[in-house]
Design a protein around this nucleic acid. Structure first.
Lengths: 136, 136
DNA sequence: CTAATCCTTCCCGTCACGGGAAGGTCAAGC
DNA sequence: GCTTGACCTTCCCGTGACGGGAAGGATTAG
């Protein structure tokens, strides 16, 4: 299989696949012409990576997941720990976003949104009376 | 005021302040020694930027917000539109995170998390039976 | 033979800075 | 006057996870 075939079948852009090889996530063979020659196992790994990335795992987390996936002697506890840590990361990010949202929504709700220049959003950002800061 | 003073007073790192000057968000004066000489108005802008960044606005959004802030003839509708667009962006991001969370949580809940190698998380990522993809 | 479509590597750009080197300046203490 | 230490300056590289595009070789269809 050439790169375009695995790209289509895995749903990943060719650029991404080359990048994954560059950082050592996959090691496709090479044909006599210098072209990458992907095996089914490479395609399989790429699909795995695509799904893991789609769930928000970082590349380094994906690397560990892939290592666990290939390690027949793994303990499912290790996989679960990795996944739960990631769930926790997402929880934190959501909380941050929600906090920012709440603050901004409050400012927005007090803004007339008309042709006049008076704007509680701007005075809030300028450190006016409202509680505007987004300290984490 | 030298950079360290504005850094302390604005809560922004000196590196960030230099960066903001480099991209034209602020234009502090320069002393004879080449040092940046910050006015109160510069400090004020930096605090504004710090709060806007704290609410998750991108640098370019901050640039527009600052321009609106300095434009006495602005319409509050323009500010509100910018803020509401950002609220919408956050809404989308939260929804994405929640979707990923839900999928991963489902996989995690079916994982024993013990010393055995069988792991629904890995089989899910490998494209097994479960619904694992995180297509957006 | 040509044209189109692949493939390769290489390098720069993204976003919002952080780290650190090399070197100039300033204020305090001796 | 001299040193010490805390400042300041610019410059360049690194981050994460790729995307865009150039320059050039390979393959395939007609």
């Amino acid at each position: 299989m050439n790169i375009k075939d695995v790209a289509e079948r895995s749903g990943l852009p060719a650029k991404t696949i080359r990048y994954y090889e560059e950082i050592g996530l996959i090691r496709p063979l090479r044909g006599a012409n210098g072209y990458r020659a992907f095996r089914e196992s490479d395609l399989h790994k790429l699909s795995f990576l695509g799904r893991a990335r789609g769930l928000g795992f970082t590349i380094e987390e994906c690397r560990r997941l892939l290592a666990l996936y290939e390690d027949r002697g793994r303990a499912s506890a290790d996989v679960k720990a990795l996944a739960e840590a990631h769930l926790q990361d997402m929880e934190v990010k959501i909380a941050e976003l929600r906090a920012m949202q709440a603050t901004l929504r409050d400012l927005v709700d007090h803004c007339a949104g008309d042709q006049r220049p008076d704007c509680p959003i701007l005075t809030g950002l300028a450190g006016g009376k409202g509680k505007a800061a987004g300290c984490h």
